[in-house]
């Protein structure tokens, strides 16, 4: 494993598989236990540095670190020196002086974790940077797929929605490709980046044509505000063309699953009855997030010299 987890490309197939296997062992070791805590990272300090509100991701990382007995410091941009104009570099030097062994960073600017990695000695884990990547989300998604379908090699995955602005899509395309899955991106052309042709994924504008041929449908959150910038004419039209409703769910193969990284816009990209269906893995994804992040923290920090 590399010292940092900044993007899906930091993981080769062996590393990615090791993370998933480790998460599975952790899950199994903790299953049914009263004491869901391991002493592995006792005395290590994990800083959650969140420049963007994301309660669910922060809590997931916090729980993961605490279950490994690490000391956790939550450093949120609001109400701290960060909001008073302290630069990312000064914040990094402060964390460095405090002896952070790992910095989990969420930032609205693409590449901020890469910058941070230049300034701290500890491991940097990207918890979502701008419209770039969110590698632990991709790991937990891959873990969830493997758990449900028993494999990743050859699994056909459709990623549907605002690919242009989605860090989840970027990380998933990279990681799923590494793990041997076949990815198809489905979106209106306005929500696909120029240059998407260089990604290891098929591209389609037609959700109905893709659905019968996939094992996994991963719906991305679409912000209704995007229609103000003319990415699509209206929420209604978007939903009609790219939303996953019960009718569309009906054309999926029998074992196919429906995923969503959350938070969902029910009624926009996903209908409530789909989100709550047996095909939906949305709740499992949340639970798997903790074990996957435990695996990442263990693998990055467990052997690193303090």
């Amino acid at each position: 494993m590399k010292r940092h987890l900044l993007e899906a490309a930091d993981l080769d197939r062996a590393d990615a598989t090791l993370v998933l296997d480790t998460a599975a062992q952790i899950d199994q070791a903790l299953a049914g236990r009263e004491v869901k805590k391991l002493p592995t990272l006792r005395g290590r300090t994990v800083v959650n540095l969140f420049y963007e509100d994301s309660t669910r991701t922060r809590i997931s990382f916090e729980l993961a670190a605490k279950r490994l007995s690490a000391d956790v410091i939550n450093f949120s941009a609001k109400g701290s020196s960060v909001s008073k104009g302290e630069s990312l570099k000064d914040t990094a030097l402060t964390l460095e002086a405090m002896g952070a062994d790992a910095v989990v960073v969420r930032h609205s600017s693409s590449g901020a974790p890469h910058r941070l990695a230049n300034w701290v000695r500890g491991s940097v884990v990207n918890a979502g940077d701008g419209t770039h990547e969110h590698p632990t989300q991709a790991l937990l998604d891959a873990y969830t797929i493997r758990q449900r379908l028993g494999r990743l090699e050859g699994v056909r995955v459709a990623i549907v929605g605002d690919v242009l602005h989605s860090r989840v899509a970027r990380s998933n395309v990279g990681l799923l490709h590494t793990l041997g899955a076949d990815v198809t991106l489905v979106a209106p052309p306005t929500l696909l980046p120029v240059g998407v042709g260089s990604w290891p994924a098929e591209v389609s504008y037609d959700l109905d044509a893709v659905l019968p041929k996939v094992d996994v449908v991963m719906m991305l959150r679409v912000q209704a505000e995007r229609m103000n910038a003319s990415f699509f004419p209206s929420a209604r039209e978007y939903s009609r063309r790219y939303g996953l409703d019960a009718r569309r769910m009906g054309v999926l193969p029998d074992d196919a699953i429906v995923m969503h990284p959350g938070p969902m816009n029910r009624g926009m990209e996903i209908a409530a009855e789909v989100a709550d269906s047996a095909r939906s893995t949305i709740v499992e994804q949340v639970a798997n997030g903790v074990s996957t992040r435990m695996a990442v923290l263990y693998l990055l920090l467990g052997g690193a010299p303090a």
Partner: peptide, 18 residues
């Protein structure tokens, strides 16, 4: 816009300057 719009901007998640 942050960088040239093309394959790299798509991957790096930086808004493209066409």
């Amino acid at each position: 816009a942050q960088m040239h719009e093309g394959d790299r901007s798509a991957r790096l998640g930086l808004t493209g300057w066409p």
